[in-house]
């Protein structure tokens, strides 16, 4: 996986972001196009490629969600946007009630939903961390499948929160 390789890292879902940042600075100092102005064109091109890899890479790797999506995609998992429309079964009942509250513009109820969903979000973040650790140990597709399910639910909940906030 090119973005991990660019930083000399093993493809792991758990990352020391401070270490990543330091690697980014060190490699940028070395490969930035500014350092290659007086070099042959081939080397300039290489510097441009490497630096854009570092810049694109750190954007993805330092964010746990995007990092997980990147690893999933690389392992052949579909992480397409269309999945946001499928309501996770465990949320069906809650979403139904939420829609009612939205229709009635019931702010007290909406506040309650928001609190619950935000809590759900942080719960899935904790769960993600555990799954990340499990995957790094076992490198199994089952773990990845579980991670994808959490990500889908997370994205879904995130959209619900946005919806509530714009209604409030």
């Amino acid at each position: 996986m090119i973005y991990f390789e660019a930083f000399g890292l093993e493809p792991r879902l758990q990352i020391d972001t401070e270490d990543l940042q330091q690697r980014f600075y060190r490699l940028s100092r070395e490969f930035h196009p500014d350092r290659y102005t007086r070099k042959p064109v081939v080397e300039q091109q290489m510097a441009l490629e490497r630096t854009s890899q570092l810049n694109d890479g750190i954007r993805i790797l330092k964010d746990p969600i995007r990092r997980a999506e990147y690893v999933l995609k690389h392992n052949g998992f579909d992480i397409g946007e269309q999945r946001t429309k499928d309501v996770p079964p465990e949320l069906l009942e809650e979403v139904f009630e939420l829609n009612e509250a939205l229709e009635e513009s019931d702010t007290t109820q909406l506040d309650g939903f928001q609190t619950r969903f935000v809590a759900m979000l942080s719960a899935s973040d904790t769960e993600l961390q555990q799954r990340f650790a499990a995957y790094d140990l076992a490198q199994s597709r089952d773990e990845l499948a579980a991670i994808r399910a959490i990500l889908n639910r997370r994205r879904y909940v995130d959209n619900l929160i946005t919806k509530i906030q714009s209604a409030l």
Binding site: S28, R29, H32, D34, R35, T37, R38
Partner: peptide
């Protein structure tokens, strides 16, 4: 200063 960075006269600074 940036010209100095490009020419290699300044090596301790970098703009991102």
């Amino acid at each position: 200063v940036q010209a100095g960075i490009l020419s290699g006269d300044i090596t301790d600074k970098l703009l991102l």
